[in-house]
């Protein structure tokens, strides 16, 4: 079993897909010789050449749109949007075009494009280079939305996204690129719409995405010291959502914390909380807790950034509240 970093796992999925299938190609800003701003695509241009590892002008709208045009012709483009903050520049193409073509053609046009992007705080890039904007896309019928938190998941989910016939917005987290894990030699595709339970527990379910999966696991360890047994579930695919897995976990533990790095207000956690309260209302012993960033643009100053985005301690406090304990007691 080779050990791969999250970054290498993304690269592995891309290169295997391109090796297996001539219809797969990647395009984006600075992805060729430079290997992408996060180094994800390093070396791919040497193997696949500059036409299949295509550097584009700084034109998010055009590269997203051109990927749609190529996808309409049966290609499976993977378009990289360098920072998810820049999704704003491509949103017309993703929301009004990619998501709508199948619907508006009566199912006759498919757009099997994957929009890969990354974001996330923790390295002080400021207000315009680290946002978590996944909830916007969960609001759009016609899209699928994936947010992977481990090397194994990111590899298997990216593969499935590339081969999904719907447009997929694929979120990676900046601070996870370095984390490592043993992954199987064989790439195992992970079906979209299937949650993963990282840890079993009896008292509280934490439903977490992206970096917060790791924060939640750290919080769960701490909670264990305090005698609280925590289950940690990562939906992995935000749209479609594996509602059954989340509901059945909460029906078992009777308490729920939802945790993501994105701003709490209007975040993906609100959708999860609504799903849980509707289907497991009678099972809940405490209000659902939401953990996320404070309602503020991300500060440039590291200490302030640290304050705005959530960490394991915030998850732990939320866990404690659901079992009726105040901090540390």
């Amino acid at each position: 079993m080779p050990e791969l970093s999250y970054r290498e796992a993304v690269r592995d999925a891309l290169s295997r897909a391109m090796r297996d299938d001539e219809d797969v190609f990647i395009m984006g800003e600075d992805i060729a010789e430079m290997g992408g701003s996060m180094g994800v695509t390093q070396g791919l241009v040497d193997e696949f050449g500059p036409e299949r590892v295509r550097n584009t002008p700084i034109s998010e709208m055009a590269l997203a749109g051109a990927a749609i045009g190529a996808a309409m012709q049966g290609m499976r483009p993977v378009a990289e949007i360098m920072y998810e903050d820049f999704l704003t520049l491509a949103t017309e193409q993703i929301v009004n075009q990619a998501a709508k073509h199948r619907y508006m053609s009566g199912g006759q046009v498919t757009v099997p494009v994957t929009f890969r992007t990354q974001g996330g705080a923790g390295w002080s890039p400021g207000a315009q280079h680290a946002q978590q904007l996944e909830s916007w896309f969960v609001h759009i019928p016609g899209l699928k939305v994936v947010f992977a938190s481990t090397p194994t998941d990111v590899r298997g989910l990216l593969w499935s996204s590339i081969y999904d016939d719907n447009p997929v917005v694929f979120f990676e987290h900046r601070t996870l690129y370095g984390i490592k894990e043993d992954v199987p030699d064989e790439l195992e595709p992970i079906p979209l719409g299937q949650a993963r339970t990282h840890r079993r527990g009896e008292d509280v379910t934490v439903i977490a995405t992206g970096r917060l999966v790791h924060e939640a696991l750290a919080a769960a360890k701490e909670a264990e010291q305090e005698g609280i047994s925590v289950e940690v579930v990562d939906p992995r695919t935000l749209l479609p959502l594996d509602e059954e897995a989340l509901i059945s976990s909460v029906k078992k533990t009777n308490r729920c914390v939802v945790a993501h790095e994105a701003v709490v207000r209007g975040g993906f956690g609100a959708e999860v909380a609504a799903v849980i309260q509707y289907s497991a209302f009678d099972w809940l012993d405490a209000p659902i807790e939401r953990v996320g960033a404070k309602f503020s643009p991300l500060p440039f100053a590291p200490v302030m950034e640290e304050f705005v985005v959530p960490h394991a301690g915030d998850v732990l406090n939320a866990i404690r509240r659901t079992v009726g304990r105040t901090d540390g007691n």
Binding site: G65, I68, G69, A70, M72, Q93, Q108, V109
Partner: peptide, 30 residues
């Protein structure tokens, strides 16, 4: 709903100019 492949006529995009990048992408693909 026509099938664009049948006529090589793409679906109509009503927002202005949004189909220009699609056409660029398709032509580049050819």
């Amino acid at each position: 709903w026509w099938n664009p492949d049948d006529y090589r006529v793409a679906s109509i995009c009503v927002p202005i100019a949004t189909h220009v990048p699609h056409a660029a992408g398709l032509a580049w693909g050819k």
